[in-house]
Design a protein around this nucleic acid. Structure first.
Lengths: 169, 169
DNA sequence: GAAATCTACTAGGACGTCCAAGGGCTTGGA
DNA sequence: TCCAAGCCCTTGGACGTCCTAGTAGATTTC
């Protein structure tokens, strides 16, 4: 990222909103814009750490998901649901990971429509190394205090539940 | 979005982290993953509202930025810095907005390297309509409580400052 | 049992984002 | 003066995400 700006552009936007008579929604606008920007910063950090391992975040997420699955394999559709991305995104990621020898496709034993994605030995080993890197280089130095982390988990968890992500208690 | 999951996948991930002996970073991992997912949900809502106006979020952001600029125009590099995206992303957005007659490029009066992007009349009018739509359909119904909004602005603002986004007080 | 309806996955295309490279314009020091 | 270094923007390419269609297999319905 380039040189820091002399002022917070999101705060400027908020002031512009207020100046134009939209003061009633200026605060949520600022909060949502801040989420957008924070995601961008965090994604860049994560991709930076994963790059030496030859992974992108999308591919890492799939590897990590499979590494926790019983048998190290899942139907593509299940991966799509759990990762909460479009099925074609999973097809894309699996194509590239398979190319790299990290996962392999297997026909489902009883349902001819379904394809299982499973980790190879190399895929499992790489998932371990990549997770270790993320843990020490990103999550352990997140830039959030413990209180921040608690608040984020609470606030965003409630938001996601209301948005229909999950129905758990 | 598809059917809600019976359980929170981020909470599952957190438990998996703890189970594998990474409990010390499980909470920040969960917070960061929640930010990623929340951004995805919010972006989808925003694009949904903008679609009838023929805009994407990236293009809308540029229109909104220009609508607040004195003279309704900025150097491309300035837009890149304020929007905090790569210069090529601005080139891309300007290409398409110019195609649609919403902005126009003008050579800088004194610096031959610089190109100014300015709103057309239609661009300014569309920015107004799109902002009104976002205000009523997204920001006014954000799904965050007032307290949530305050906490997010505070926590994410501090994070962004520490990340080097800006140097303001 | 056959037809209609679902479900799972894949191909092709539109967008946005970034990086690397290249060409034009300015600036500042020799 | 002039030229090397830096800045500004664009092109081309890699990725990820989504959408729309299309195919094949599974279920439901009559």
């Amino acid at each position: 990222m380039s040189t820091p700006l002399p002022r917070d552009p999101i705060d400027d936007a908020r002031r512009n909103w207020e100046r134009h008579g939209w003061g009633d929604v200026a605060a949520p606008m600022a909060a949502i814009t801040a989420i957008m920007r924070t995601q961008q910063i965090l994604l860049a950090r994560i991709e930076e750490v994963l790059k030496p391992h030859g992974l992108t975040f999308a591919r890492y997420e799939l590897l990590a998901l499979l590494s926790f699955a019983r048998g190290g394999a899942l139907p593509m559709s299940r991966a799509s649901a759990l990762l909460q991305v479009h099925p074609t995104s999973v097809t894309n990621a699996v194509d590239r990971l398979e190319q790299a020898g990290l996962v392999e496709r297997t026909p489902h034993p009883t349902d001819g429509r379904t394809t299982l994605v499973g980790l190879t030995g190399g895929g499992r080993a790489l998932a371990e190394r990549a997770t270790a890197a993320l843990n020490t280089e990103v999550f352990a130095r997140s830039g959030f205090t413990d209180d921040d982390v608690d608040q984020l988990i609470r606030v965003l968890g409630a938001f996601r539940r209301r948005a229909g992500d999950f129905v758990d208690p």
